[in-house]
Each structure stands twice: as C-alpha cells, then as structure tokens.
Design a protein around this nucleic acid. Structure first.
Length: 472
DNA sequence: ATGTAC
C-alpha cells in the first residue's frame, strides 16, 4: 500500500525519490523533473527527493531535499534559495476559540498585531537595545533577556530550548563583507513580517485522536487558540545570497563548471567560497529565528493590549524549511539541503531538543490562506528520506496566473467574508489577497495525506484559521 | 523573498 505514495524516478543524470500519492504525482509539471535532472548534475550527490508539495523555483524546486557526504560535498546557494532560514513558529495561547467567537474581537486583535508588527521595517530607533551583531553571531542568545519572556513548562524551559536551533556558530570574520547599509536595513527589519506568503495566523486546533497522547504531552488541547508565524531572514538572507552568488557564479565561469541550468550555483564545501557561503548562511539562520521570535514578541504585546497583562504566549516550536547543514546518520556525516522541506524527527532521535526527545518534535506545516494548517510529528520510517516532509500546500499557479483566474468575490467567499465565521484578514481590499488565495495552491489536505500515507509523519493536530495578518 | 535597476 505504502508504495503508492512513493516513486523512484530514473532520470538521465540520476534518480529522484518522489513522495506523492498517485493523483499528486500525475499532476506534477514535467519541469520539476527537468530541474531535478539539472540538480543531479552537481557532482557527488548521494540523495535527492521531492515532497508532494513540490513546485518549480529558481534553479531548484521548492520541495527538494538534496544530500551530499560532508567529506566530499557541495553547497548550493540556489538550492537553499534566497530566503535563508525561512520557517515556521507556533506559539500557544491560553485562549479558547470561543473567546474569539465575535468577528469584532478578531478584527480588534488583527489591528493590534498590525500596530506592533510592521510589514516593512520598524521606526528609526526601535529595538535600540538589540545589537544586530549579537543577533547574527549568537542567534536567540544574542538578545537582551527581556525579549525572552516565555516560560514553557513548570521546568522553567524557555523558547531557547524549544526551537530547532537557538544558535549557529560560525567563523565571524566573514561578516566584514557587508557594507553599513546592509547592517542598517537588517536592524530596522528585525521583527518584521516581510511579503509574499509570510504571515501571522490565529488558529484553533483540533487534536488528532490517534495521537492525543503526544498532543497532551506538548500542552495542546481541543479548541486551543495558537499563533502560527511564517517568516524568514528578510533582506539579510537576501544579501548573503546575492554577495555569495556573484562570487560563486564568477568562480564557476573561471573553472568551467556548471550544469545545464546557469542559474544553478554551487561550490565544493572545501572551496573558500563554499566555506564563506556556509558561514554567512548560518548568520542568516540566526537572523531568521530571532526574526520569528521578535514577531512572537510583537504578537504578545498585541495580546496584552486586548486581553490584559496576563496574556502569555508559550513557544511550541520554531523550525526552518530553507537551509543546509550537517547531519549525522548511522555514524556518517551528511550535508543536507532542504528547500521547502521540513525536518520531522521521530521519538528518540538524538537531534530532538531535550524537551521533545521522548515524543519527537512538532513539525509545523502551514496551509494556504483560509485553509487548515497542521502540527505533525515524524515517524521512524522517515529515515529513508533523511526525515524530510513537506513544507506546506505548494503553489500550483504563479501570482500573475492566479490574478487572471480568480475573482475578488471567490477570495471573499473562501474567507467567508460577511459571516460570523469570517477569517479576518488585515487588508483593506480583497484584491491584494488574490495571488495568495487557496486557488493558487495545491490542496494541503491531499499533501498531508501523501506524507502520512508514505509513513513519513503523523498528524498531531489540525489548525483552522480564525484570522490572519498577511505581508505586503 | 527581496532589493534594485529598468
């Protein structure tokens, strides 16, 4: 039965392992296989796979897991993509969905969040007590203590212990390449949402009966309101991508290396430019996790405005879906790229943060706007795919194509506008939401079914949207 | 996704 959710596709340059049910597999654009074939031309690759939400990107597909041995590996800035460290965070509230029954109250909360959370950048002087240099060097450990207020359990664990990685260490000399302007902009963008598919969503959860025990161990209960955050490293990651990309493209020309796709950049891990990229990428991973943490801080402030000083947010988990790093498996070191792919570790895996060692950590999977999101947990069988699962619904239409196809009325209907159940969104006109409408994405429920069917992960809770704050 | 140049 399991086999129907997995296909091993043989291409001229190698094989790509595709995790997708029959219907999703049949719907894949041939271009994703063209792209796989190009990616497989990078030397020494030991494994490449697609998750069911795979779709075409620049140089590589979103939904890719690409693995090298650490000893003779390559790093590809194109596979990581330019939103380095982009990922998800879920914060638990003490609210029940009935507390947000009134449309008016959801609207009020959305407005309060907007007040504390700029899309673009903060006012000059905001976060003047935060040193950007400390943030990019030390991640969450570089923040002043007042920004880490959330106590998680009676055991006094804070969000420093409830994230995939609270700190990446790297050779800090590489930071010298950035001009003052990059530092300045990055400081003002700290704790801001950004554009595209980035969002803060207010959701109500439904526990999956078969995994209730895990849900309870994580502090989840039916009807609980949670905050789901999707953002990345903003312009800092973009600068890393741009600066390193220029140098690596030049090196590739000089050495006469490359694949059929000139946009697919890569360097040996042993090359100085490969090393520089990995170091700078780690600075962007630090930036991204702090960015999501400060977004949660802003939501906490907004919650206090509406519900009073007792309003608290506890961190369930924070993890990335665009990155590359070293992982151990069967006593071997691999260099693993995930582009639009989420690591989902099972119970007992040593790379789980200690708080989640016994259960596996929460894997956070967003749906498209107006549809459900999921909190999942990895299964031991995920090992075959280096524990990668999907990262969301996966786009099926470009922004422009969606605008041609979908009307404002259809988007309003999908958001149940005008009813008591309206999913309140922070936009003055529905028009600006069209390119993020559910019609632009695959059906997330079908994606999840493929992941579960393939045995990679299980659903712990389904999260239904109540309100959303979208970026530009 | 994002900044920048067109």
């Amino acid at each position: 039965m399991k086999e129907t959710y997995y296909q091993n596709v043989q291409l001229p340059s190698g094989q790509v392992h595709v995790y997708a049910g029959p219907e999703l597999f049949a719907s894949l654009d041939y271009k994703v296989f063209e792209m796989a074939n190009n990616n497989l031309q990078i030397p020494n690759q030991v494994y490449m796979s697609y998750t069911p939400d795979v779709h075409v990107g620049i140089g590589t597909c979103i939904g890719t897991t690409a693995v090298w041995n650490a000893s003779d590996g390559f790093v590809s800035p194109s596979i990581v993509g330019s939103d380095i460290g982009c990922g998800m965070r879920v914060q638990l509230t003490s609210l029940h969905k009935d507390d947000l029954k009134e449309v008016k109250l959801r609207r009020k909360l959305v407005r309060a969040i907007e007040k504390h959370l700029p899309v673009e950048e903060h006012a000059r002087g905001h976060f003047s007590d935060i040193r950007l240099e400390h943030v990019v060097k030390k991640g969450l450990h570089g923040l002043p203590k007042k920004y880490i207020p959330d106590a998680y359990t009676p055991r006094k664990a804070t969000s420093l212990t409830h994230v995939e990685s609270s700190r990446f260490d790297f050779d800090e000399d590489v930071l010298d390449i950035f001009p003052e302007m990059v530092w300045h902009r990055a400081h003002r963008q700290l704790g801001t949402l950004g554009g595209g598919n980035h969002f803060v969503e207010i959701q109500a959860i439904e526990i999956a009966e078969e995994n209730r025990e895990i849900a309870e161990a994580w502090g989840l209960y039916d009807g609980q309101v949670v905050i789901m955050i999707h953002s990345g490293s903003r312009a800092w990651g973009g600068a890393v991508s741009q600066y390193c990309g220029t140098d690596i493209a030049k090196m590739m020309r000089q050495e006469g290396i490359g694949t059929a796709d000139p946009k697919l950049l890569y360097a040996p891990l042993s090359h100085p430019l490969g090393q520089t990229y990995v170091n700078l990428m780690y600075s962007a991973l630090n930036y991204a996790v702090v960015n999501r943490h400060l977004i949660a801080y802003a939501v906490r402030e907004a919650g206090k405005d509406i519900f009073g000083p007792k309003f608290e947010l506890r961190t369930l988990y924070d993890l990335m879906h665009n990155y590359a790093w070293e992982e151990q498996m069967d006593e071997r070191s691999y260099f693993v790229h995930r582009k639009g792919a989420t690591r989902a570790l099972p119970a007992g895996h040593p790379d789980n943060p200690e708080a989640y060692r016994a259960t596996g950590h929460p894997a956070l999977i967003p749906g498209s706007m107006g549809t459900s999101s999921y909190i999942m947990v990895g299964s031991p069988e995920g090992k075959a795919n280096h524990y990668s699962i999907c990262h969301g619904a996966g786009r099926i239409r470009s922004r422009n194509a969606t605008k041609q196809l979908v009307s404002v009325e259809e988007v309003a209907a999908a958001m149940r506008v005008g009813t008591e159940d309206e999913i309140v969104v922070n936009q003055r006109s529905m028009e600006s939401l069209v390119d993020e409408s559910p019609q632009a994405y695959k059906d997330v429920d079908q994606i999840i079914e493929s992941v579960v069917g393939a045995g990679l992960a299980r659903v712990v809770a389904k999260c239904r949207p109540l309100a959303a704050v979208k970026g530009k």
